[in-house]
Write a protein that binds this DNA or RNA. Structure first.
Lengths: 298, 298
DNA sequence: CAGATTTGTGTAGCAAAACTTCGTTTTGAG
DNA sequence: CTCAAAACGAAGTTTTGCTACACAAATCTG
């Protein structure tokens, strides 16, 4: 329902939902989207080689009440960019093409995340975090990058935390936890087996464990108190690592802001001063040195 | 020119380019964009409280030939989301609202990067990287995260590299370089003064230095062989750190893919096998263990 | 300050657009 | 081959976008 319009058209084509004439319309639209949304009904029908009612029937089958609605949906899809499935990078592409594809891909994936994000799960995690004494982020590999990023971000909002990216250190960290602590495990695949013992140890100590993974059915999900599913577009195996980091970083941003706000509402921290603190921090105004010496926090 | 349509409208309003009636139209559009792009000319004029020609004149002043064009532009802007300037997170926002804002912000910023990215500079960097014996990524703080990410990504494409995030280690690393090496310095502000001596040392040893910063006029830019400007939207001080990481990570993706491709074209690496290698890697098929034991590379 | 000129706004009309109806053609199962 | 159902298009109806023109307001000029 809330999916990229181009994908919807593609799906309708493949599912055989469309008749011959309607299929011609859909194919034309996919081949020349810019043209399709700017042409008038009569010209579009002529360009496709069908009659006007056929074009309208096609639009209706694609879920648009009117041609206007179709154009609006199409314009939105074009603005976001071709989803990854249609944007594979061909050998021999220029640097400009590669850049366009990577950014189109990133944008459309974040758009996808925006449509599918589970706010309920997010709320449960924020609630846990807001009540925690300290936060612990775990991750290996690229997910380790995300864990470290979280560890850099949360303190800015007044929340002390720890990041561990080494399996042994994670296990040690797990042993030190209590029921006042919350662990966030980043694992894109959700199949990082080395995490399992640490998660179990953490929970045995009473700590709450949140797993951030691309699928709610991942093995690690079963061990968690809350699973935060970060969906990525289908058929994107090659690019998955590219986007999963970015999506996870956005999750970190959301969690940090929301948690800080909830803690602030409880009386400890004012959003206003938090923002000012961040600005000072990133502007380097807190340090007595010149602008040239400010740390690279941003 | 290639800017978010909502920003354009805002700019026209503030610059006083619009007459009284046109201003009413613009304000209505900003207040109710979804309605504005779906209403017919007559109904829109009625809703705003002006005549039809006034609405059309407003559209023309905003750079649209027709009302259709206006609707298409508006739909594109809506699909990408409100740009950061208009999407400040208010205290008391729900988690869902925060998530929507953060993701809208990330999407619109990546869209902005997509519009403004300097392909020429990108090409120069890729050329340097493709000819390098080894790559060295430097960064402190959040930029250190990016450096580490790059260090994880390039080897996947067959390019050995090093990441340093400690100023002292960076200086040591700089002393070890030769003319066959390329350094990429991540510094969002471009004012990380501790980098300066290291950059100078690297260049004294003949290494090429690329600086990735949000502004081409940054102090560090003067010391670099090539500057890669990663623009972020104006008036977004509070969120800048949020987006700069993500934008920089996209740059890393672009550079790694483009560099790998150029190296492959030189005879060393086939894109096809590269892709397969990545899939194997992320699927865990290279390791003899079960799926449960695959490393978290993705 | 009066007149002239520019700028802004709305009314009215028209061509083109979107949409509907209905009859014809095509398709496919028996 | 028969017949029913689905697909399609011609023609007509209604709505829409757009323009020409006239009036009003603001601004400039002598």
């Amino acid at each position: 329902m809330a999916t990229h319009f181009v994908i919807r058209i593609q799906a309708a084509l493949e599912a055989g939902e469309l008749s011959r004439g309607e299929r011609l319309v859909a194919q034309f639209v996919l081949a020349a989207p810019e043209e399709a949304m700017r042409l008038s009904l009569a010209r579009l029908a002529e360009a496709v080689g069908v009659s006007e009612p056929t074009v309208l029937r096609c639009c209706r089958k694609l879920g648009c009440d009117s041609l206007q609605e179709f154009r609006i949906k199409m314009a939105g899809a074009e603005a976001i960019g071709l989803p990854a499935t249609h944007a594979e990078i061909q050998p021999g592409s220029s640097v400009g093409e590669i850049a366009a594809r990577v950014l189109d891909f990133s944008v459309s994936n974040l758009d996808n995340l925006r449509r599918q994000i589970d706010v309920g799960a997010l709320e449960r995690v924020v609630k846990l975090m807001a009540g925690a004494r300290s936060l612990h982020f775990w991750g290996n590999g690229a997910s380790g990058i995300v864990a470290r990023d979280a560890q850099q971000k949360f303190p800015l909002f007044g929340i002390p935390c720890v990041a561990e990216t080494d399996s042994h250190q994670i296990l040690i960290n797990a042993a030190s936890l209590s029921s006042a602590d919350v662990v966030v495990v980043f694992s894109n695949t959700g199949r990082n087996a080395t995490m399992k013992p640490s998660i179990d140890a953490a929970r045995a100590n009473g700590a709450a464990v949140v797993v951030v993974a691309s699928s709610a059915e991942a093995p690690l999900a079963r061990s968690a108190d809350v699973v935060l599913c970060v969906p990525t577009l289908d058929n994107t195996d090659i690019y998955t690592p590219t986007i999963s980091r970015i999506a996870a970083l956005c999750i970190v941003d959301i969690l940090s802001i929301a948690t800080a706000q909830m803690r602030g509402a409880a009386g400890a921290l004012k959003i206003k001063s938090m923002k000012e603190a961040i600005i000072r921090n990133f502007r380097g105004e807190t340090s007595p040195g010149t602008e040239e010496t400010n740390p690279e926090n941003s």
